[in-house]
């Protein structure tokens, strides 16, 4: 075996040091200082002492969790009193409205339309809560994806747009999501949202998403920050 082959084979061996090395390797190691050096370095690296975290870290995490989770679960004043039934109505409304081919213009007399309009009205906090509530049901409804993409494109609040991007991670298995995001990216006017969309495309780890992202970079259709970020993520992920 050549040294390179031995050294690559040693990668496996260093993970399971209790296993006995094949006689052929041992013989090679006895005569090859280079391979011995690599083995010695692997042993050093394997025994590199692990720093220990503060013993109070778990308790601090527990407190942070208690502090942050109720925030995401808390209902908005707009939804208070309606609770889960309204969330269910929202889901039905989003799916139903699209299935029926309705436009997105609010029609106050239609309860479904009324519920769908929750995505658009109230304060930014209300819209954030609506997104959290609706997506907590984790429905794979593609119409909900469209509604979230609408928020990403049009919501006046950057925070709401970012929240909608985060909610889209739930629908990562939707095969059309990559294309839809690629369409939404160039017209996005908020740099932070562009970066979040780039991250989402990378997270999809789908060849089509990678190609679409690469095309956007090559065609200079992204802002400088988003282009730089996309190039870095594409290189990092070897996409």
């Amino acid at each position: 075996m050549r040294c390179e082959e031995i050294q690559i084979a040693l990668l496996e061996a260093q993970k399971y040091p209790q296993e006995i090395l094949p006689a052929e390797w041992i013989k090679h190691l006895e005569t090859c200082p280079d391979c011995r050096e690599v083995r010695e370095l692997w042993q050093q690296l394997s025994h590199f002492p692990a720093p220990v975290p503060d013993p109070g870290l778990t308790e601090r995490f527990r407190k942070r969790l208690a502090h942050e989770v109720p925030q995401t679960k808390r209902r908005s004043p707009l939804l208070a009193g309606w609770g889960l039934p309204l969330a269910a109505t929202l889901l039905l409304a989003v799916g139903g409205a699209f299935a029926a081919g309705y436009s997105l213009r609010p029609l106050p007399t239609n309860p479904r339309r009324e519920a769908l309009a929750e995505f658009r009205r109230g304060t930014a906090a209300d819209r954030l809560q609506t997104i959290a509530l609706v997506t907590s049901n984790r429905s794979g409804d593609s119409n909900l994806v469209m509604a979230l993409l609408e928020r990403v494109a049009l919501d006046p609040s950057v925070e709401v747009r970012l929240s909608a991007v985060e909610a889209l991670y739930i629908f990562g298995s939707d095969p059309s999501l990559g294309d839809r995001i690629a369409e939404a990216l160039p017209s996005q006017d908020q740099p932070r949202v562009q970066l979040a969309l780039v991250d989402l495309m990378v997270a999809l780890r789908e060849r089509r998403a990678a190609e679409a992202l690469r095309r956007l970079v090559q065609e200079h259709r992204l802002g400088p920050a988003a282009r730089h970020h996309a190039e870095a993520r594409l290189a990092e992920q070897r996409m």
């Binding site: 692990a50 720093p51 220990v52 975290p53 870290l57 778990t58 995490f61 527990r62 969790l65 208690a66 989770v69």
Partner: peptide, 16 residues
Amino acid sequence: ETALVLLFERHHGPLF
């Protein structure tokens, strides 16, 4: 949340 804290206890050391 309790399950998450248990996962935290199990894995936070090496991750840290």
